[in-house]
Amino acid sequence: MKLEHTYTFDIPRDVVWKLIQNEEVLKKSIPGCKSFAQMDDGIYQAEMGVSVGPVKGVFTGQVQQVDQKEPSSYRLLVRGKGLPGEIDAVADMRLDEVGQGTQLTCSTEVQVTGVLASVGQRVMGGVAKMVLGQFFKSVDKEMKQLATHSE
């Protein structure tokens, strides 16, 4: 399944670039995130509660950042495993300057298995959109707080 999501931050691109990869920001912003820890350079171990329609479960997995082209793009590799199935996603994140702010475009290709696929797939597009929306909104909030503090 392919998904595309766009969010505009009222924050300059170099700040977004720095903070969107900040462990604390991510931990607080990922919906349902139970734990988030850096294991290796650019590799994070995450535990996250997911609810897709009738399918609910905790997923554990790895998030890896690759192909970083500061400050305009990077790629996220996500592999998660939970009781309802497995998630395998590749997300291309592109940061474009829009005025004073930054437009972030996230293009994802997601593969799922198990109940997540057989039961969840029908509603997954909508859920993913919602989750991504929540994520960027929280990121935005966290960034603004951090940006204020650091000023």
Partner: peptide, 14 residues
């Protein structure tokens, strides 16, 4: 089926 072999019509809902 999805291209990766997941049965998408896997319940009486689908």
């Amino acid at each position: 089926y999805s291209d990766n072999g997941q049965l998408l019509s896997g319940t009486f809902m689908d």
